[in-house]
Write a protein that binds this DNA or RNA. Sequence first.
DNA 1: GTTTACGATTTTGTATACAATTTTAGCGCA
DNA 2: TGCGCTAAAATTGTATACAAAATCGTAAAC
Lengths: 228, 228
Amino acid sequence: MQGQADQRESGSARVAESLAIAIHEHRLSPGMKLSEDEVGEIYGVSRTVVRAALQELAHDRLVELKRNRGAFVAQPSVKEAREVFEARSLLEPRTAKSAAERATPEDIKILQKHIDEEHAALHAGDTGRALHLSGMFHVEIARIADQSTVAEFIAQLVSRSSLIIALYWQRRTALCESHAHDALIKALARHDGAAAEELMHHHLLDLLTSLDLRDQPSVPKSLKEALN
Amino acid sequence: MQGQADQRESGSARVAESLAIAIHEHRLSPGMKLSEDEVGEIYGVSRTVVRAALQELAHDRLVELKRNRGAFVAQPSVKEAREVFEARSLLEPRTAKSAAERATPEDIKILQKHIDEEHAALHAGDTGRALHLSGMFHVEIARIADQSTVAEFIAQLVSRSSLIIALYWQRRTALCESHAHDALIKALARHDGAAAEELMHHHLLDLLTSLDLRDQPSVPKSLKEALN
DNA sequence: GTTTACGATTTTGTATACAATTTTAGCGCA
DNA sequence: TGCGCTAAAATTGTATACAAAATCGTAAAC
């Protein structure tokens, strides 16, 4: 995520990506400690490269570094959750509009493939992968808009949204995003910028309101952290 | 810039900040190589901490890391320059609007102090410091809007803008930003969100059009890079 | 004179070693 | 039992050592 264009997968990049996926799929829960020795042993690398990977993830706000204390999977606060979706609301609707004006048939095909895979994953019960693909859909739109700088920001925000959803999702509402994405792709296909902008705007609003953003940062991992 | 909240200035953070300032003040020119040994010797630290600092700066796009080749001061392309200001145009006007609605008298005082120092620096001929303060003004507005996530993005974009201005500034237009900032602060003081949004929008447009964004990435450091 | 190949030097990538800080466990004492 | 203190263990921060890659200089070949 927002890596600095390494031509070949460097050691730290590989570790960072693997950790990021694990966090996105909620296999590493928020608040969990990421010991340098432990991570290094798992991936068969030294602490040097683990530290580089953790620093990269910290920059993307997926992990939090505490000086002399170590790295922990981030626990976005309610305020941070709102801020992330506020930022997305500033960036994504206008980007979707630009994408609609520039989208080629090939772009639409790629997006459609994303949606199909998302549906398949959802049908197979792999909600983790479905969520990941759902995020990729948003990043792909920014790429179509040919705005790589904005695309990097959106990629980071989508990544953080994944953590936020893991923390604050209220299971009452079904995962009905697919419909929003279907409508979006149709607007993009017919180059309807205004519709795409509006659809994206409401899609993000729906996402935000589907969260339970009332108070505390959700379940702490241990009683100790609850009193921290 | 966008540091991960170290409670005390860590070694790498200190080096990164010092390098960032040097880049902003154009004492380190775009394309210049940053040797790890050399930087480490200058600051009296080992390559380990230099590498961490360079990685942080690379994430903020102030330096570019080339695998097995080293770190270089970034040379934003024309396309990247346009993208950075496009992103700022998406984020800053609406953020200025929010700031206007929330600004307290103390916030206005802080902003006014920034402007005064900016004027003083400009009057003293220290354009480097003036540019730095000018950027801080924009970041401060995001802070007033109480949107730290957006503020971090803006901080990074302002930082990159500094490099872009160093590269593409056409000296024909004078540094008349101050007037724009004066008008902005007045709109903020009277809580006129609409005016602040519009002023920020035009301010960014003016900045963009004051650049010479025609073709090549400006002066290359070596002939080799010119043909790369 | 130009080009190509090869070796030496330099520089980066990674692992390991040591220092500093934090955490934890044990012990004494009220 | 509960609290506070001290020391040992574990973990992070930093420096150094070694391996791999790229760069540079030289020289040989055409």
